[in-house]
């Protein structure tokens, strides 16, 4: 019954159209590889297009675009240092507020949360990342800013006497660096907490049990055994949050006040690089102005690229250590 003709493979070859499937395999592989190649192509195309658009301004003005602070469109001066300053300060404020909260939530969710709370709280925090930036901006204008101006700013400046420091001095404008920082903190929080939670969960049980067996309290276990193990991953998460904050456009544009000034006070309005581009793009009439905005974009691109690359590298190094 098993008397196959000697050339059974050869017969099958025609019947199964195996040459056709070998060809389809090649086509399939080429197609998926082409899709994969789109990603690096996109990165290169983005970089090229931004630098092409920015080139006239860089050629004419050089680095004065970020080192000087005189932005005078009609006079042909384009110094965006205040925007760079605003980007850095608003993101720093955001991280100062968001980091402890995000890590707190991550520890809560990975260590202490009663199991019935874990899912809903995790979902709500994740949902923060799903809210469109323009909705944050809208809420910022009509809810957050009045709240800050009427209650929080006077409290910080007068009740806590922080007005004596340069950081909280001067009149309390509503739209301000502080408002931008708070909005950015809310927006960066889900990113930091998601990554932190992931790396905390990746800490091996043995690590925790060893600490508890030595008589550590639950907090000491977190502080001495869990956090050191997850540290570089958490830093990676913070940097991802930083990347978000640096490049965030709409919400910040709506609450920061859009004034090109360097002021130490968080209560005064400011500007960020992203909001400068977004605001002036539609009004830019002459080519140099447009190109200067693109140059600001190019610098923002480089900064966020570096921050993201470092962040990914840190998160990956934790993942790799876990895999070993």
């Amino acid at each position: 019954m098993t008397s196959l003709p000697v050339d059974w493979l050869e017969k099958d070859r025609r019947k199964l159209r195996v040459d056709a499937s070998a060809f389809s395999d090649k086509v399939y592989e080429a197609l998926t590889a082409a899709c994969a190649l789109v990603v690096p192509a996109l990165v290169i195309a983005i970089a090229l297009s931004i630098f092409a658009a920015a080139w006239p301004a860089f050629a004419k003005l050089g680095l004065s675009i970020i080192t000087t602070s005189n932005w005078d469109v009609s006079g042909g001066h384009f110094g965006a240092a205040p925007a760079l300053f605003g980007t850095l300060v608003s993101s720093t404020v955001a991280l100062i507020i968001a980091t402890p909260l995000a890590i707190g939530v991550a520890i809560f969710l990975s260590e202490f949360s009663p199991s019935w709370l874990r899912q809903p709280v995790g979902f709500l925090v994740d949902l923060l990342a799903a809210i469109p930036s323009v909705v944050y901006g809208l809420w910022g204008i009509f809810v957050l800013i009045p709240l800050l101006r009427q209650h929080v700013m006077p409290f910080l400046r007068d009740t806590l006497h922080l007005g004596a420091t340069p950081f909280f001095s001067g009149p309390a404008y509503g739209p301000s660096m502080l408002a931008a920082g708070v909005i950015l903190a809310i927006m960066a929080l889900p990113y930091i907490s998601a990554v932190s939670r992931e790396v905390l969960m990746a800490v091996p049980r043995s690590q925790r049990e060893a600490a508890l067996a030595l008589g550590a309290t639950r907090w000491e276990m977190i502080r001495d055994a869990v956090i050191p193990y997850a540290r570089s991953g958490i830093i990676g998460g913070i940097m991802l949050g930083l990347g978000r904050a640096l490049g965030e456009t709409m919400a910040v544009t709506m609450v920061i006040g859009n004034r090109l000034e360097i002021s130490a006070s968080l209560l005064s309005p400011g500007y960020t690089m992203a909001s400068l581009i977004a605001n002036e793009f539609s009004e830019a009439t002459n080519d140099l102005h447009l190109s200067a905005l693109m140059a600001v974009g190019a610098i923002l691109f480089i900064i966020t690229l570096i921050v993201n690359a470092v962040a990914r590298w840190l998160v990956w190094s934790v993942a790799r250590r876990r895999a070993q």
Binding site: D12, R13, L16, V18
Partner: peptide
């Protein structure tokens, strides 16, 4: 296998695995 070389030139692994 049964007289046919499964690693022979031009033999498709797919045909082999079917049998």
């Amino acid at each position: 296998i049964l007289g046919s070389s499964i690693y022979g030139d031009g033999t498709s692994p797919i045909a082999v695995r079917r049998h």
